[in-house]
């Protein structure tokens, strides 16, 4: 068994695709229309350009009524929806901040791991982490 997909509930798939590709730097892998409205009901996944055959991140619509309160509660307490690995958290923090990304946790080294937490502009917090 392998982990093939991870997903985040996004407020808007159009906005999410822009953020996850143009800002974070992932690339689109699958984009299949599933219903109406066509822009916001897609099977939409992105992958890392460093690992295009690797785990796909599903940018999933937030339509279910439980999703809103769930996301809101996590964001309020600063809890990330998922985490991505980077080589250098501080360098990514500087790069993303220049692009206007909002961080709820600046880079912090705790033992073997350095992390930071950013807002994906689609209702989620995302952790970036670097293992030494």
């Amino acid at each position: 068994m392998r982990i093939h997909l991870n997903s985040v509930f996004v407020d808007s798939q159009v906005k999410a695709l822009d953020f996850y590709t143009n800002v974070l730097g992932f690339v689109k892998k699958h984009d299949i229309p599933l219903g109406e409205p066509v822009d916001e009901q897609r099977w939409l996944t992105v992958v890392s350009p460093e690992d295009p055959e690797g785990t796909e991140l599903v940018l999933e619509p937030s339509g279910h009524p439980a999703v809103g309160p769930y996301k809101e509660a996590l964001v309020q307490d600063g809890i990330p929806a998922t985490a991505f690995a980077v080589d250098d958290v501080r360098a990514e923090y500087e790069r993303l901040r220049k692009l206007g990304v909002r961080f709820t946790q600046e880079p912090l080294t705790m033992g073997p791991v350095t992390t930071a937490v950013l807002d994906d502009t689609c209702g989620n917090l995302i952790q970036i982490q670097q293992l030494r």
Binding site: D77, G78, I79, P80, T104, Q105, E106, L108, M110, G111, V113, T115, V117, L125
Partner: peptide
Amino acid sequence: ERSGQTLFELCGRLTMK
């Protein structure tokens, strides 16, 4: 050490440090 922390950051610091 750093003012303005989320609950998540504080929990991480207490656990990891």
